[in-house]
Design a protein around this nucleic acid. Structure first.
Length: 533
RNA sequence: GGGCCUGUAGCUCAGCCAGGUAGAGCAAUCGGCUCUUAACCGAUCGGUCGGGGGUUCGAAUCCCUCCAGGCCCGCCA
């Protein structure tokens, strides 16, 4: 008994002196600083069409680590985004002209812009992506893998990999049990005749030159025919096999941390293999992995076939950038994340809550960790976090206000803010209300008197209320009047309010009554309360 | 065939790595604010921590197992 008690006391004491809980980004930054004080964080995206929210998550998580490291002042620090544009084009995304099929098997960097507005397919999609990341305050150093090959940045790595290809084959065998054939080459050239990379087979290597034949290959289970061309390629027009390329890239850029999804993280997967290749072939310690779970949308995987692709650009039509960042930083990367457009208001409210705590207009509850909340809020900011008490324009309030009256000046005066401050947010909320707002939060003043049966006493109440409104619609008096009348007539205020909502909206509840009334034409209101249409 | 993640209050999630009084926000309910529904404030309600077993003085937390959901690898990346 005594022993048990002393254990408890000891533990409670320890808990008190332990530092506050730590945000994952801070924990990673600490671990990284323990390892070294020069850091490069790598993120990357394979460009196969519109770049969605999940792809953005990769970079956003990287930015989280970047910002947390920044606070610890390492001697050098950068955030890199690799445009994986030497990858072969594997599937024509939905919505694109089917004629793009002719590019299957070519490096995506050689496909033209689908809208003929940019210099290429890759530029088209990556520009949109990078611009929307910029709005989230993320501006990584950008590298195109195609350019890197062209410029010869990979050349030494390719030579080394070819030299040690048998060693690499052994690593593949040991780590993932995959048998690469004896004549396997870690580098695949682009066919100089047809421009495809999925169809070429390297035959031999000598002095920086690869002999190959374009004999065809399989892409997503579909056979792509080769053109039959036989030729020689230098080491600038082709690509290292992924796991080798990944390792080479780590070594070349000195990558110390990289976020990635489970497709790489799986046991025997590319992170395992690349780690060993990195260490044994290129002599670089693999980066600290930052594993994350993929983002779902409305409980489903984002897929072009389902048509539920959500991009940051799309999302910026409904949410402020801070809330999008908040979505990624409020919980651990490994946690399932479901971006549900219908529940977006809840997300916005949680962000507002964290903002109030950070900026001192609300105190955290005993179980909320102030240090962690501080990190979450700071990581959610596009720029510097501000400490002053916020003037908030709550998403929820706006949802109701825009449905009553979408005049900017009127809404601004209700919220007590400058019209130009709220204008943008009104647009965001209006779009959400129109497209995703659940029906129970939607309302509309009925143009005709809704067909409702009211007991005589409530009719009398409405008549009297109507009369008093003929003279005066100042809001304090309206509420006073409703209360007075309901007590005079012996009905509960609740019934009284219900009656008003019924005749105005056809529903038994609605937004604050004075807000609603004030936005309506006085004559209309008086008539309606008299049940005259 | 191999692996990963998730399961804690109606909803969204902390807490798990380093076992020690089950938490927050939102919702709901009730009340307050000279202004009673949905801008604010307070209080309350709400959970056999997916099930079972084990280790332990003590398990949401560690181990085993089962169930449910989501996903990945086993072509290429």
């Amino acid at each position: 008994m005594d022993l048990e008690l002393s254990f408890k006391v000891f533990k409670l004491y320890i808990l008190q002196i332990l530092p506050e809980r730590m945000h994952w980004a801070d924990a990673i930054a600490q671990e990284l600083m323990r390892r070294s004080d020069e850091h490069a964080i790598a993120t990357g995206t394979s460009i196969s069409g519109r770049i969605h929210l999940g792809n953005a998550g990769d970079v956003i998580f990287g930015d989280g680590a970047y910002r947390a490291l920044e606070k610890l002042s390492p001697s050098s620090l950068k955030l890199i985004w690799f445009s994986d544009d030497m990858d072969p084009f594997r599937r024509v995304p939905a919505g694109l002209d089917p004629s793009f099929e002719r590019y299957l098997g070519m490096p995506v960097s050689s496909i033209p812009c689908p809208d003929k507005c940019c210099s290429s397919f890759v530029e088209h999609y990556s520009t949109i992506f990078l611009n929307s990341l910029k709005k989230l305050g993320i501006e990584p150093e950008v590298h195109s893998t195609t350019d890197m090959y062209f410029k010869g940045i990979y050349e030494n790595s390719i030579k080394k990999a070819i030299e040690k290809k048998d060693e690499i084959r052994k690593i593949f065998k040991e780590v993932s049990g995959a048998d690469r054939p004896k004549d396997w080459m870690p580098f695949t050239p682009v066919c100089e005749n047809c421009g495809r990379i999925s169809t070429t087979k390297p035959l031999s290597y000598e002095d920086g030159s690869i002999e190959y034949r374009c004999e065809g290959g399989v892409v997503r289970g579909k056979l792509i025919e080769g053109c039959g061309h036989k030729g020689h390629s230098d080491l600038k027009h082709g690509k290292l096999s992924w796991r080798v390329e990944w390792a080479a890239r780590w070594a070349i850029f000195g990558i110390t941390c990289e976020p990635f999804g489970k497709e790489h993280a799986v046991s025997g997967g590319s992170y395992d293999t690349s780690s060993i290749i990195s260490r044994e072939i290129f002599g670089w310690d693999p980066p600290l992995p930052l594993q994350y779970e993929h983002v779902l949308v409305g409980g489903k995987k984002m897929a072009k076939s389902i048509g539920n692709i959500m991009t940051v650009k799309d999302l910026l039509n409904y949410l402020e950038p801070e809330v999008i960042r908040f979505f990624f930083f409020r919980s651990r990367p490994i946690t399932h994340k479901d971006f549900d457009m219908v529940k977006l208001m809840q997300l916005a409210e949680e962000y507002e809550h964290v903002e109030r705590i950070y900026r001192g207009s609300e105190s955290p509850s005993p179980r909320e960790d102030e240090g962690e909340i501080k990190s979450i809020y700071e990581l959610s900011q596009v720029g510097e976090a501000v400490k002053e008490k916020p003037i908030q324009m709550p998403f929820r309030s706006l949802v109701y206000l825009v449905q009553v009256n979408d005049d900017v000046n009127w809404i601004a005066s209700r919220l007590g803010v400058e019209p130009d401050k709220v204008e943008k947010k009104i647009q965001l909320v209006e779009r959400w209300v129109e497209e995703f707002c659940p029906p129970e939060m939607k309302f509309q003043v009925s143009p005709e008197l809704p067909g409702v049966e009211l007991p005589p006493v409530l009719k009398e109440f409405l008549q009297k209320l109507s009369k008093s409104l003929e003279k005066d619609v100042r809001e304090k008096e309206v509420q006073d009047r409703i209360r007075k009348l309901s007590s005079e007539l012996g009905i509960s205020p609740k019934e009284a309010y219900r009656a008003v909502y019924l005749v105005l909206l056809g529903k038994d509840h609605g937004p604050r009554i004075t807000t609603l009334m004030k936005s309506l034409d006085k004559n209309f209101l008086v008539k309606r309360l008299r049940l005259e249409g």
